[in-house]
Nucleic acid binder design. Sequence first.
DNA 1: ATGAACTCTATTAGATCAGTAGGATTAGTA
DNA 2: TACTAATCCTACTGATCTAATAGAGTTCAT
Lengths: 151, 151
Amino acid sequence: MQVTARAEYALRAVAELAAEPERPLSRNDLAEAQGLPGKFLESILRDLVRDGILTSRRGAGGGFQLARSPGEITLADVMRAVDGPLAAVRGVAPEGVSYPGAAQALTDVWVAVRAAVREILESTTVADLVAGRLPESVQRLISSEDAWHRR
Amino acid sequence: MQVTARAEYALRAVAELAAEPERPLSRNDLAEAQGLPGKFLESILRDLVRDGILTSRRGAGGGFQLARSPGEITLADVMRAVDGPLAAVRGVAPEGVSYPGAAQALTDVWVAVRAAVREILESTTVADLVAGRLPESVQRLISSEDAWHRR
DNA sequence: ATGAACTCTATTAGATCAGTAGGATTAGTA
DNA sequence: TACTAATCCTACTGATCTAATAGAGTTCAT
């Protein structure tokens, strides 16, 4: 259950774009604002354009902008654009795996894990992220003290 | 958010051991019962012994057994034994990352994701798994029809 | 003694991850 | 028209991880 650098960088760039909706921001603007490696970020931005999360304009004064309003882009949309499906078991979707004998119920566990992750990442929009006001159900998860403690 | 083969194989082996508590099962018994590669499983079993999830006995008639009762081993215990921490961002624990500017609240999102995953994997025991009776909170997550549908 | 079984070290082929290099193309501006 | 800013595209690299195998050593019951 590792979050990749691609996913993280994508979300940081998108947050920055949501905070500056007036003008396009260039790859370098974004890289500097968030301290990200420019060329690597570039390939991430292209994924986001391909998936219709961003629009781009070439040439002088060009750059990237959100294709929809920040309230209509979920964190799941962004992560799937750069990394593919949110959750998988050995590369296969949870409902696609099955087990013999004693381990049969394991499929249900994987489905539950994916559902839990979806609940967070599909209910939280980029607008929520930049406003720092996460949905009620997400707030509840982080309000417990030991959500912040390493196990 | 990929579940590795190690984690999956570990849980399948542990489930099998919980279903046959009387006698030790050998690496080959387990590999055959679940259709897993024997030598690879071996290194996974050693991780589980090292972390005190299993006990082992060498020699003829030896094999592996659960070190505690199945109701006292959570799925999280097993997964952490073979893969390390359940959730991380670029290899760092969620509470250890921080972001400038517009992306500040991203830390909260990662903490929420980890908390959600923990809630499932720490509340479900190996006994629940083999009985096919997952905790109430986990059942709720998979009862929705579209938890089973690819997005 | 024999053989069944775990323990341990090493190795490997392939994939993925994070990141870089460099040129081609597009577009605004002087 | 030239210049420059910017995206687009292809290719490549080094490091790490993943899944798996090989083979020798050790323990123990019979």
